[in-house]
Every structure is written in C-alpha cells, then in structure tokens.
Amino acid sequence: MAYGSRVIQRDLSFTILRGDIFVIMGGSGCGKSTLMRHMIGLKRPAAGRIVFDGVSLWEAEAEERARLLRRAGVTYQSAALWSSMTLAENVALPMELYTDLSPAEIRELVALKLALVGLAGLEDAYPAELSGGMRKRAGIARALALDPEILFFDEPSAGLDPITSRRLDDLIVELRENLGTTVVLVTHELPTVLGIGTNSVFLDAEARTQRAVGDPKRLAETCRDPVVHAFLHREEPAEVSTP
C-alpha cells in the first residue's frame, strides 16, 4: 500500500474466513483505514492481490469488481450518511439501484433494517437530527441494505461514549451471529478488539508491515512481539527492532 512513492504498509498477508470478526488493529497512522479502503475497492494496492471469494478484486473487470463489492456493506468512520436525504432514503438508495423491488417493498425493508439497529420510527429523520451513535447505527442499517455477506466497519467506536460503543459492539456480534455476516473492523479500541474480535492483523507504523496475525485474545496472552504486547496491554512499548 502506498501513496505515490511513500509506502504505507508492505508484505501484508492474511486470510479472513467466513463468519470471522476480523480486526485490523494498530496505532494511529499505521494505515488501518487505508488497508480497508483497498479492501472495499476505493484504492488500488501498489502491489499484490486482494482475493474475495476466489476472485482477485483488482484484477477483475470493473463490472465484476462492482458486483463483488455489492456483496459487502461498509460503515464509515463518520457514518457518511447523505445529509440531504432522510434515513429511509439513505437506506433505500442501494435497494433502488440494485434490486427490482417495488417502492412499497423497499419501504418495508427499510423499516426492518432501521428496526434491526434500534432506529424504528425514524425513517423521516435527517442525519443532522441524530446523535453520533444513532448516525453510526443508521450507517449500519444502510450497509445492511443489500443483505451483505461481509460488513466493513471503519472505527465504529470513534467519537462515541464507552456505553454506546459497547452497545455497538453487541449489535455487531448480533448481526454476525444472526445474519451469518463476516465482519471486518478497523479499530484501535482495546475493549472492541478483545471483546468481539475472533481474528486480527496488527499493523505497525514504524515497521510499515504486519507484526502479528491471529485471535486477538490469544495474541494478548501469547504474542511475544513487544509492540503487539504493549498495544494489547496498554503499555508503553519498550525499544523494539523492526521485523
């Protein structure tokens, strides 16, 4: 991954299995969100492949790539709701674009998606009328619009209080367990990493590569890499060498 000639991360290699809650973790500026932007088709990697269900995302034709990406839902750090649209319109837009459902059917589905994230009755509200946590949940409802197989979350807890953050974590777990959705999370929030993550990759800004891959709870117990250990135990890292 690079911006021009500036390499952000290199030699990344990991596999996300169906049903995982996969956490992309690491300190600020290590390229977590950039990695996610590569995975959701917003940025082409400088080298290497991202394979989704056997198809190389960036080697596929644009149409094929778009079709693959429609199987994913994305919730952005700022929720990224379209401010000129109501919540119902935000959630309905992907369905209007990519399904042949009637407006009445879409209305029913929108009500369901909003109810699933605890926003029933707020169909006519505009994003500006909602709190930060509600906006995040509305963003999830929009990401769920096309019943995605994989859900991406960029810093879901950013800007939220701890209680709202934990509720959001619970919601993510519920969605994964009941919809069978695979979840990819970008976060540096330890309670989220250790509370709901089932698999992870740790990116390091200094070394500009991954330092560890695996179940974050197990990494917290067994990983000997001082940077990963310090991160997962909220410690100041000791002097470390880059791998």
């Binding site: 109810a115 699933l116 605890g118 926003l119 029933a120 006519d124 519920e174 367990e177 009941n178 919809l179």
Partner: peptide, 21 residues
C-alpha cells in the same frame, strides 16, 4: 437460526413517535 432472534431485535426498541409534520 437467527431469524427469530433478529425478529426480537427488530421489535426490541419501540418505534420513536415523532411529532407530526
């Protein structure tokens, strides 16, 4: 599996009563 639980989630929070336009 999951459908009954999702129904529960969908009905767990009663709809917000917004003031009429």
């Amino acid at each position: 599996d999951g459908a009954a639980r999702l129904l529960e989630i969908a009905r767990a929070v009663p709809p917000v009563q917004r003031r009429g336009r």
